[in-house]
Design a protein around this nucleic acid. Sequence first.
DNA 1: ATGGTGGAAGCTCCA
Length: 262
Amino acid sequence: MPFTLATWNINSVRLREALVLRFLEAEGPDILCLQECKSPVEKIPREGFAALGYPHMIARGQKGYNGVAILSKRPIAEVGANDHVDLGHARHIAGRLENGVVIHNYYVPAGGDKPDREVNVKFGQKLDYLTAMRDAFHAERPERAILVGDLNIAPREDDVWSHKQLLKVVSHTPVEVAHLAETQEAGGWVDVTRADIPEGQLYSWWSYRSPDWDAADKGRRLDHVWATPDIAGAAHSSRILREVRGWEGPSDHAPVMATFDL
DNA sequence: ATGGTGGAAGCTCCA
């Protein structure tokens, strides 16, 4: 049975409950992975999602910050939640579908402003988080697995509006890109979005600080869909739903989708 | 070099 999966940094699931419902109605993915829910798990408005055909949810949350959730039409069993760097942040949850496929949903730390761990603790925490992810995949090589989320890094030159102007901007620095590549290699992860759409500029995030995000189009591809090689070939029809960034009261991220024939 | 916007919590932190 093929299934469609979406990942979306929602920037408050309670404030944007109506947007989530609109997206679920419009696109009907089998699985929606959310990041930055900014809500304790018990306050996530899951009744409305259930009423639209998403009765299954696994989530980790905390008050005000971070938070990840997986909404699903099909049963999904939680199989892990890694803190990775002992910050007490709700940044990861993993679930297993009945067909055995494991889905990892990640919200990697943004990393603060200055790309220097000597003066910016958060940047060091971001690099350490990626290193811990790498080590976890080295320790246990994932199989039949999908990894999605806001990884807060745009790895390729054509994943940002200006490679040259962003080389020293957190999210596109060489040291971050190298850390992300090590994490990807450790799991053997295939970048599904780029396997499907290998050429051209591709963004999933546009800053709120731009007066006209659409016209300026200074985007970055921070949100990713990866799969292990044993199932990556089953993926197709990747899309980034740029128009959702233009909905009223939007998140600064657009949903990223892919379909798997599994 | 700076400030631009937005969410949550609550007179500030985080993105």
